[in-house]
Write a protein that binds this DNA or RNA. Structure first.
Lengths: 189, 189
DNA sequence: TGCAGCATGTAACCTGTTACATGATTAG
DNA sequence: CTAATCATGTAACAGGTTACATGCTGCA
């Protein structure tokens, strides 16, 4: 049995939601449509194929509910391998590339950690995230100082939002790290 | 001749860069690798096909430089249609969907506006962006207040970063809007 | 009766990723 | 001489978008 990997943010989001409670494809769509996870595609053309892939690779299993009625529903739940693959994906090391090009995926990973991984793993994740974010922040702050004055208004403004965004993320990461630290010492004693 | 559209953020970024100065595929790669536009793919498998599409649809034209040498370079420049298509893409109306799922594309569009569209268009763009961003900010602030207390630590923290990010964007948009207003009145008098 | 919502899917198309491939030039 | 960089591509694959398609349920 080859090691299963999770092929996209959408699949990761589906697994994460299923780790909290079993749901049908339509249920998942409603979550994506109505909650703060609106950044995800709620189109059937994305969700149903993703569910099929997850079931084919053994990460989820669907059971038919309301068998007797004329409108059955496929309710999916995580398998043991599914939970293991999810935990593996959540705790994978963070790279600079992740911070630059896949921050949304990092945030998604963190958002599902409670209950799936221990507080030490969460702490380590956030420590690395804070470090990489601050490291990259220095890089683009430098770029803004160097090139900003020579850029036209709109280009400079765009660059400034980039810097502001990473600053916001870095601040949040440090704040969250402190929160995790408090939780950890509270439990440690 | 059908109206040409720009098929992706990468193509938009390429057109925008070419509007500032003609470049080869390799030159574009270097920009994506070394400047603040690191969020874009610098892989040849993305850039060269994109350049082919742009040339096929008549938005760019390539001319061979250093013909005589053994290492010729294809240098691309915008055509008239290319510039028109770019301007059209930059000034397209902003939707709530754009703000929720394609903020990167909106930022990209604004970053190339100076020199391609008038300050009134830039102002209108930023006014709409600020309005939509603040509108959506209210939505997720409400969600955070409503669901935040019931969420586990990591879920709530992720939601908080989402809110912080949109707050940062909204603040930036208002600041930039004010800057544009100053420029406009300065020129208007 | 008809319409909105429930519920699930398929198919064509397109873009990006990853990996591979080729050859020239230049600096050490 | 050889390694890094210049410079350009191709091919397989996979995932998302868009649009289409189907039929049931509950309500007005």
């Amino acid at each position: 049995m080859t090691k299963q990997t999770i092929d996209s943010n959408l699949s990761l989001a589906i697994l994460g939601l299923l780790s909290m409670r079993s749901m049908s494809g339509y249920g998942l769509r409603k979550v994506f449509l109505t909650t703060a996870m609106k950044a995800f595609s709620a189109s059937p053309g994305a969700i149903y194929p993703a569910l099929q892939r997850l079931e084919r690779t053994g990460l989820t299993e669907g059971t038919i509910e309301k068998k007797n009625t004329l409108r059955p529903r496929m309710v999916y739940h995580l398998t043991r391998q599914g939970r293991a693959a999810l935990v593996e994906a959540l705790t994978r090391p963070i790279t600079r590339e992740d911070v630059i090009r896949r921050m949304d995926g990092l945030l998604l990973r963190f958002s599902f950690m409670s209950g799936l991984v221990g507080i030490d793993k969460m702490h380590e994740f956030m420590r690395a995230l804070a470090a990489e974010t601050e490291g990259y922040l220095e890089v683009i702050e430098c770029e803004l100082r160097e090139f900003g004055p020579g850029l036209p208004l709109s280009g400079r403004a765009a660059l400034e939002l980039g810097v502001d965004s990473f600053r916001t993320t870095a601040r949040w990461a440090k704040k969250t790290l402190a929160e995790l630290k408090r939780h950890r010492t509270a439990k440690g004693e």
